[in-house]
């Protein structure tokens, strides 16, 4: 708290309403996500779910093939599943923030009337969810190395590629999250389903746990439109020196993938601002900005 007070008191933050709103959303989101239980329960919660998700995949593959652990294909699946935790959280997280503020805490109107930049605030809340998921991923990947013979070694990790691709991916995916969150404002009774539905669809389309080439041809282009598809491929390349090669995305070199992801970050960032402004205006006109359905 003392550290946050110092950050909020710094001249750069005091001068910029957008930065102040972003940090407020980030701080508030972190508190909401982490302060509901004591640290032991919290850590158990954030380990149990992702570890269980990934172990389901491990068992599924082990039922079919005996010696699949440690193979490049297993690494592809395991890392895809682990990293998708981050992508899923930030893409659908903002949608949940809208529902929480509007339906659960019932503070949507207070936030709207407060002197905050609503876009930056939502973005901050989404990034907070991403940050919490980083904790999960930072546990599940070492666990994969220790228990499931995941071929990741500290010395072989391409940290510059990992950091650059994650920053670009974070911008693009957070912007996509704001677009979905903006759309959530327009939905009342089924709003809580929007995030989960899209999370399931994106999980399928990005080819997180299987090669995207297995999808029907008609669905593949949709996967190519998602930034998480490119970020997952880049992050895999950064973590494993020789990731298993498939066609399509894998046939592109790293520089091309980075360029595509950077382009997507710009396009989604601009689009998210436009969609957010449009959605807020429409939500006011329709009177659904602070609607409580108790649904």
């Amino acid at each position: 708290m003392a550290m946050m007070s110092r950050i909020f008191a710094s001249p750069a933050v005091r001068r910029s309403p957008a930065l102040r709103s972003l940090l407020s959303g980030l701080w508030l989101g972190w508190q909401i996500e982490t302060n509901w239980a004591n640290p032991i329960v919290f850590i158990t919660y954030f380990i149990a779910r992702p570890v269980a998700s990934l172990t389901i995949l491990v068992v599924m593959y082990s039922v079919i093939a005996q010696d699949i652990l440690g193979t490049p294909f297993f690494a592809y699946v395991y890392l895809g599943g682990a990293l998708y935790l981050l992508a899923g959280q930030i893409v659908v997280g903002v949608s949940w923030v809208v529902i929480e503020d509007r339906e659960h805490y019932r503070v949507a109107k207070q936030i709207y009337t407060a002197p905050v930049n609503s876009y930056a605030y939502l973005l901050g809340r989404g990034i907070a969810r991403f940050a919490v998921s980083v904790l999960s991923v930072s546990i599940t990947i070492p666990l994969g190395v220790l228990v499931f013979r995941l071929p990741v070694t500290w010395s072989a990790i391409d940290f510059p590629l990992l950091i650059v691709s994650t920053l670009l991916g974070l911008i693009a995916m957070a912007a996509l999250g704001v677009i979905i969150g903006s759309y959530t404002y327009q939905i009342t009774r089924q709003a809580f389903s929007v995030g989960d539905t899209l999370n399931g669809v994106f999980y399928l389309l990005t080819g997180a746990v299987f090669p995207i080439e297995l999808l029907p041809e008609v669905l593949r282009p949709l996967g190519y439109l998602l930034p998480s598809t490119y970020w997952l491929e880049l992050a895999r390349r950064a973590l494993i020196p020789q990731p298993v090669a498939f066609q399509a995305i894998s046939s592109l070199n790293t520089e091309t993938l980075l360029a595509i992801l950077a382009g997507m970050a710009v396009v989604f960032a601009v689009l998210s601002v436009v969609v957010f402004i449009w959605s807020m205006r429409l939500a006011k006109e329709r009177g659904v900005l602070d609607v409580e359905t108790n649904y």
């Binding site: 995949l57 599924m60 593959y61 039922v63 699946v77 989960d196 539905t197 999980y203 399928l204 299987f210």
Partner: peptide
Amino acid sequence: VVPLGTTAGFVFVYRAAGA
């Protein structure tokens, strides 16, 4: 649609593994 996305994902996982 919610369960179909995840279910289809797991079907493709089995197909990828040659089950």
